[in-house]
């Protein structure tokens, strides 16, 4: 019981304090720019572009796709900062020198970004309703909320993996940007997946977000929760796989750093 309490406390404190300590965008101006203005600009850009290209008949497709994809800002960039920030702060040696449960330490870093990311999606969908008239009158809002949460968690799973890469490479923001734009193309946010070549469709299926976006579109169009359960289950599964891959990479990194003496040089 004592161990469980210790680990839960570590998870919670790691969640809150690491978010404040390491999330570099956690300043009013930077936060508003990166979490509100940039996503809004992205949504407006792709919605106007997409509706122009499709003859203005498919506004909801682009608004919903981009609103859900915005969770990647928190999931990829935010989580990466919260994992990789220890490298820049010089705190890795002090973390690895503690007896703390690594799993709690690791997954705790993503938790606030799940909340933050979900909040970002809600704001984006609100913009969608206000600016583009997206209609939620037929939507099962509880199911949509669950979709947003599951999609954010799965995107944070990929973020945890990317965060571990930031412990190994100095060029992680380049990698993060690439992943972010790959998600714009392959997640179905802006291009219908069934119009992509087969190999691209296959690639779409191993990414987080793909099923979350599809699920959100179904629900906002008036679909039932039962229709999206298989999509949400797969979406959660993909997120869990990425999260565990990240955790194993984190453990591998710790072992390698102790073998090679590379804790400060990475």
């Amino acid at each position: 019981m004592k161990t469980i309490n210790n680990n839960l406390r570590l998870f919670w404190q790691g969640t809150v304090l690491s978010y404040v300590a390491l999330f570099a965008w956690f300043r009013p101006v930077t936060y508003i720019a990166s979490k509100i203005l940039m996503p809004l600009a992205q949504m407006i850009f792709f919605t106007f572009l997409g509706s122009y290209a499709s003859g203005g008949s498919n506004v909801d497709f682009y608004v919903i796709g981009n609103a859900i994809q915005i969770t990647a800002v928190s999931g990829i960039f935010g989580v990466t900062m919260s994992i990789g920030g220890d490298r820049w702060a010089g705190t890795l040696a002090y973390l690895f020198g503690t007896p703390a449960n690594r799993m709690m330490m690791f997954f705790g870093r993503a938790f606030m970004h799940v909340i933050d990311g979900a909040f970002g999606v809600v704001i984006a969908l609100t913009w969608g309703a206000l600016l583009f008239g997206v209609d939620f009158s037929q939507t099962n809002l509880s199911a949509l909320g669950l979709t947003i949460l599951v999609t954010t968690i799965s995107t944070c799973g990929l973020g945890l993996l990317m965060g571990c890469l930031s412990l190994i490479t100095a060029n992680v923001m380049f990698v993060n940007n690439t992943v972010y734009f790959l998600l714009l193309i392959f997640s179905g946010a802006n291009i219908a997946i069934d119009t992509l070549p087969n190999w691209m469709q296959a690639f779409s299926q191993i990414l987080p977000l793909t099923r979350g976006i599809a699920s959100a579109r179904i629900l906002i169009a008036g679909g039932s929760f039962a229709e999206v359960v298989p999509l949400l289950t797969s979406e959660a599964g993909i997120g869990i796989i990425y999260g565990w891959l990240g955790y194993f990479l984190f453990k591998w990194f710790e072992v390698q750093a102790k073998r090679k003496g590379s804790l400060e040089t990475v």
């Binding site: 210790n6 570590l10 503690t98 703390a100």
Partner: peptide, 8 residues
């Protein structure tokens, strides 16, 4: 506080 939680 954070390091205290890391050291249980």
């Amino acid at each position: 506080r954070y390091f205290a939680s890391l050291y249980h």
